[in-house]
Design a protein around this nucleic acid. Structure first.
Lengths: 207, 207, 207, 207
DNA sequence: GATGAATGAGCTTTCATTCAT
DNA sequence: CATGAATGAAAGCTCATTCAT
C-alpha cells in the first residue's frame, strides 16, 4: 500500500538452503522479521534489526535473501498460502453442506482461525506493509474466490447474491480482524462475539 | 502500533500562530501534509516534500513545528476532533429518539459521513501512521463513548447491552471503512450497501 | 569499460546551484572527485572520500548529485566537451591549410594539448572508469570525426586514405597518451618527442 | 595506478603446490580468475566468482592463496614472464641480425604476438588492474631492456639512439595494443595495419 | 585438506533537523 | 521572521576473509 517496491533481480544466485545449518539460519531470519513486524510494525523492520534478533550477522542475512523485501515476501507468501489453504479447506467443508446456517458458521470460523495465529502480524501485513502487484492480486483472488464460493453455497445468484455474499464475507472478515487485534476492548470473549456475529449474519441472510 | 515515536519535547516555545500570515503558513503545511498522506501514504511523507508542497521553505516549516510528528499530530488531532464532533452531534440526534431503528440508521450514517470526506486519509491515519499513546487513548475513548451512548440509546444495559452495542458500532465502522476504501470491488453502490448493513443490524438488534 | 551503470533517474529534483555558496560546493565536490581519480584511480573514488576531501558533508554531496555516477558524469562530460572543443578548434585550424605538413603538426599538437592538463586524470577516465553507452558513443564519435577530418585534409580518399588517417591519428593519440603519463621514463622532453613523432608521421604520409 | 594495494604479508606459509591435486586446483583458480578478468574486467573479479568458476570452494581458494591480490599476482607475473620470454627470444633473434629493417619487423611482430593471445586480458592487466610497486618496476624493467636492446641492435647510441628506440618501441606497443582491442574499428586487417606500421617506422629510423 | 556458512568493515544513499545568512 | 545550504545518524547492501564442521 505504501511506497517502494523491490527493484533488481538477484545478481548472484542466493544460496539454496540445503543444509541444516542454513535452514536454521533462514528460519531464524524469517521468524525474527515476523516478530519485529508483529511487535513493532513495518517501520521498525530493518535488516540490521532482523539480523541482530535472528542472532546472525548482516552478511549472513544477505547470503540467503537478496534484499529486505525478499524476507518480507517469504512472510507474506506464507501468510497468503496459509490463508489459501484454510480457504480451500473451508470450501471443501462447505461443499457438501445443505444447511445454510452451517455455511455461515463455516465462514465465520474460517476467519476466526485465520486470525488466531498472530493477529498483530496479520494486521501489519494487511495494512502497513507495501504489497507488490502480484501479492495484491493474490489477496484479491482469495477474496473473490471466497465470495463466489459463498454465493454458490447459498444457492443465491445474481446481484442480490453477490451483495449478500459480500456482506457475509466482509462482516466476518473485518469484525474478526478488529476483535483479534484488540481483545481487551471487548465486552466478551472472542468466542461469544463470534457467536453473536453468526447469529446476526444468519438473521440477515435467511430473514 | 508501528515504530518510532517522537523523542524530544519542544525545545524552544514554538510560536503561537496568532498572526494571519502565521496561520496561513501553518494551514498550508498541514494541508500539504494531509494531501501527501492521502495520495501517497505515510511512507511518502517527508518534511521536505511537505514544505515544497506547502510553498514554504523547510526552515519556515521548522519555525512553526518542532518536528515532523508535530505536523502529523495536528492532522490526527483534527481528524479525531472531527470524529468527536460528529459523535457529539450524533449523540444529540439520538438522545431524543424513541424509535430504535432510527438509532441504527444514525450510527450507520454517522460512520458513512465519517468516511465520506477523505477515505484514503482516514485509512492512512487509522492503519499506516504510528499513533502516540495519548492518541491511541483518544481513539479508544471515542469508541467507548460511542459504545456507551449507543447502549444507553438502545435502552439496553449490562453485558448483553455492551455486546449488542459493540456489534452495532464495530460492524458499522469496519464495514464502511472497508467499503469506502475500495468502492470498485463492491457489487453495488455504497448507499445500497449501507442500506443492507442497516437492515442486518436492525434484524440482529430487534429480533 | 568495467561494470555497473547508473540505474534510477533522479527522484526529487536535485537542487540547482544558483547561489554562490551552492556553486562553490558543487565545484568543490567535482574537483575533489577529479583529484581522487587522478591521484588514486577509480577504485579509490567513494562518496565519503569525495565529501571529506571537498570539505563537505556527505549529505551536501547528495544535495547536489543524485548518486556517485552523476559526479563522475560531470567530470567525464567536461572532459569530453574539452576534447570536442579542442577538436573543433583544430579542425578549423586545418581547414584552410594547404601544406600537408601543417596538418600533421596540427594533429600532434592537438593531442599534446589534450593531455597537457591532467594526463593522469585522462588515463583514468579513458581506461579505468566505466563509461555509459552514450559516453562511449561520444568517444567513438570524436575519433571518427577526427579521422574523417584528417582524411579530407590530406586529400586522400578510399581505403588507403582511411588507413593513413588511422595511422596518423592513432599514433599521435596513443603516443602522447603514453608519454604524458610517464614523462620520467622518456629520454627527452615531451616537446622533443612530439617533434620526432611529427617527423615520423610526415615521413610516412608523404613518402 | 589505482587504489588499494595488498596490506598484509602471508600469514601462514601457503602450501607449496607440489602435489598434483594442489597444482590442478591452483591452475583452475588462476585460469578462472584470468577468464573473468578477460571477459568482464577488474570490477567483476571477486573471490566467490573465481572459486565458483574454478569449481572449487571459497575455503579451498584461501587454502592456496592468502588473498585476492595473490591470485592476481600470479596472473600478472605469468603475463610478465611471458612478455619477458618473448622479449628474450626476440632479442636473441635480433642479436645476429645485420639488416636493420629486420629489427623493426622483429619488434613489431613481437608486440603483435604479445597481443595475439588474449588482447582483452592484456588490456585489463595493463590499464584496469592496480599494480604493486614491484610489478610496476618489473614492467619498467621490461621496457628498458627492450629499449636498450633495440638501441644496441640499431647500432645507435647516446641520446639520439634512445629517442629512436623509444619511438620505435612505444609506437609498436601502443598501436598494436590499441588495434587488437578494437579490431572492428580498423579500416584494414591487423596484418595490413602492422605492415603500415613497420613501413612508417622504417622510414623514420632509416631516413 | 575440503567445505561453505558466517562475519563485519565499508560503501551508497536518505531524510529529519539545524543554523548561518 | 524567512531561507535553503549544510549536517550526520541510520539504513540497505557487498564482498574479502575466517572458521567450525
Amino acid at each position: 500500500m505504501s511506497g517502494k517496491q523491490p527493484k533488481k533481480a538477484t545478481k548472484r544466485p542466493i544460496r539454496r538452503a540445503k543444509q541444516q545449518r542454513s535452514k536454521a539460519t533462514v528460519d531464524a531470519i524469517v521468524q525474527a522479521a515476523a516478530q519485529i513486524l508483529s511487535e513493532s510494525g513495518w517501520s521498525a523492520l530493518n535488516t540490521n534489526a532482523v539480523a541482530t534478533r535472528a542472532g546472525v550477522s548482516i552478511g549472513s542475512l544477505y547470503e540467503y535473501f537478496p534484499n529486505k523485501q525478499a524476507i518480507l515476501n517469504v512472510i507474506i507468501d506464507e501468510h497468503l498460502a496459509a490463508g489459501e489453504a484454510k480457504l480451500a479447506e473451508g470450501m471443501r467443508a462447505m461443499s457438501g453442506v445443505r444447511c445454510r446456517e452451517k455455511i455461515v458458521e463455516a465462514v465465520v470460523s474460517g476467519f476466526v482461525q485465520l486470525h488466531q495465529d498472530d493477529p498483530r502480524l496479520h494486521r501489519v501485513l494487511s495494512s502497513e506493509v507495501p504489497l507488490s502487484f502480484e501479492q495484491k492480486r493474490r489477496v484479491a483472488g482469495l477474496r473473490s474466490q471466497i465470495l463466489s464460493g459463498v454465493a454458490l453455497a447459498l444457492a443465491e445468484s445474481g446481484c442480490d447474491g453477490e451483495i449478500k455474499a459480500t456482506i457475509l464475507v466482509d462482516t466476518a472478515e473485518t469484525l474478526t480482524h478488529r476483535w483479534f487485534i484488540d481483545k481487551a476492548g471487548l465486552p466478551a470473549s472472542t468466542e461469544i462475539m463470534a457467536g453473536e456475529l453468526s447469529k446476526m449474519l444468519k438473521g440477515y441472510l435467511f430473514a
